[in-house]
């Protein structure tokens, strides 16, 4: 059994004259939650569609569970659960019909359907209603159920929490943790850095079709300074970043007349912005 769930080598995809993905190299290990970040138009969705064999690359290859899904027997896709970024469903079908259709197309049992719907608090009666009457959040929840219901080995999720309320978002993150606990790999593309921060083992940042950073979340934290917010007794706020040993920082803070102090990690969005805008872009 391969230890690599996703292997992207020298991948280049062009949309006409535009290079959507440029010489991308990436490996995702089996069993990890991998955050795939990037601004709009960075090439995230193109990469995902190439992974699933929905787009043929101009150069390089993208292997999923050891196979190129564009060339491998279609049955290999049974092992993958997919949630597209701009989720569209069949408006006239009911939720139940939609779930059954995709279960039939996968040709496998759906052992996790009940658990997923229950976790997302998806009402039973909604399964009997046509999808066109669903709210955005319900549609997204149904999309999540489509991806998870057949207990796939690999979940490829593009902007999975779009339209979800905070409770549903937490429920989704719980599903991701459950999937990881049973050994599944999760490839999570998102704009919502906070949720990636909460579940991802490693993250990759892509901008203008090129990989800017790939690192474990813990590793990123270790290399970055702390963010210190100090509030003086006169009420003024002082925000700065501090690297190096914590003792030195604490000694320095003691010498100041402070009403309060908050020391925390640099938010992921700062790392994201630095990576996206590096090289003067």
């Amino acid at each position: 059994m391969t230890s690599t769930a996703i292997s992207i080598r020298n991948l280049t995809v062009r949309h006409g004259p535009t290079v959507a993905v440029s010489n991308l190299n990436l490996e995702v290990r089996v069993g990890e939650v991998f955050g795939f970040l990037g601004p709009n138009g960075a090439g995230k969705s193109t990469t995902i569609r190439t992974l699933l064999g929905l787009i043929r690359p101009d150069a390089g290859e993208a292997l999923v569970l050891g196979q190129d899904l564009a060339k491998a027997p279609a049955i290999a896709r049974r092992r993958v659960g997919f949630l597209p970024g701009d989720l569209a469903l069949f408006p006239h079908a009911t939720g139940g019909e939609t779930l059954s259709l995709f279960a039939d197309l996968h040709g496998v049992a759906t052992p996790d359907r009940g658990t997923v719907l229950e976790t997302l608090r998806f009402p039973d009666e909604a399964l009997r209603r046509s999808v066109k009457g669903y709210s955005t959040g319900m549609r997204q929840a149904l999309g999540i159920a489509l991806a998870f219901q057949h207990r796939p080995e690999l979940l490829v999720l593009d902007e999975p929490t779009t339209g979800l309320d905070p409770l549903a978002r937490d429920a989704f993150l719980a599903l991701v943790r459950m999937a990881r606990a049973r050994g599944a790999t999760v490839f999570l593309s998102s704009h919502v850095l906070d949720e990636v921060d909460r579940v991802a083992d490693r993250i990759a940042i892509i901008a203008k079709g090129s990989l800017r950073m790939i690192e474990t979340v813990a590793g990123i934290r270790a290399t970055l300074p702390r963010r210190v917010t100090a509030i003086r007794k006169d009420g003024t706020e002082w925000v700065f970043e501090s690297a190096g040993p914590i003792d030195v920082l604490l000694d320095r803070l003691k010498s100041l007349e402070l009403a309060d102090v908050e020391i925390g990690p640099v938010p992921l969005d700062v790392i994201f912005q630095q990576a996206v805008h590096k090289e003067g872009e």
């Binding site: 699933l52 279609a74 049974r78 701009d86 197309l105």
Partner: peptide
């Protein structure tokens, strides 16, 4: 509509 991607991501 975008539903074709969803269909072709299955073994179809």
């Amino acid at each position: 509509r975008g539903t074709l991607d969803l269909l072709l991501a299955t073994p179809l």
